[in-house]
Amino acid sequence: MSEMSRTEVAAPQRARAVGRTASFEEFYVAELPRLVALARGLCPAHVAEDVAQEAMLVAYRRWREVSSLERPDLWIRRTCANLAVSQFRRRLVELRATARLAGRRTPPVELSETSEEFWTAVRGLPQRQAQAAALRFVYDMPIADIAATLGTSEGTVKQHLSRARHALAVALDATPQATQEEQP
């Protein structure tokens, strides 16, 4: 994951930088792509974009409050991660996706069999482990940021990631190698 961070974490950092002073539109444009990826990692393809959009709708409605937070980027990721795993909220999003108000449809994100297998295994984890793992993979987030995003302690996040790695390794017949930072 660390290799990925150097090249791919740039977009979220931009979002964080613009978060407190930017307009909602700037925040939206900077944060949406990876938010869709986060949702896609945590819920079925056909609702992922709507889950991300639903999270953005909450931020839009409360932008004055959200933009004054220290880390609006973490707030939106938490909101999206929660929407993606909450049965009732996700179901509502799914139904809205079915009866889409805007009427615009984009094809769902299709992945190769290997990648789909990996993300299916992530979605099969207990909710908190899945959220922690998805944030770690998609954003290459430091432990401290995952803890702040999920509203829990760094120790708990390490425990979630450790268990998630073990479970994923078993499910995917792979070797689990925790980074130094992830060691409980």
Partner: peptide, 17 residues
């Protein structure tokens, strides 16, 4: 190893999302 799988799957996810 899991990291290799995770990197590849995440890269594809990001490219296609």
């Amino acid at each position: 190893d899991l990291d290799t799988l995770a990197r590849a799957a995440t890269r594809e996810l990001l490219e296609r999302s």
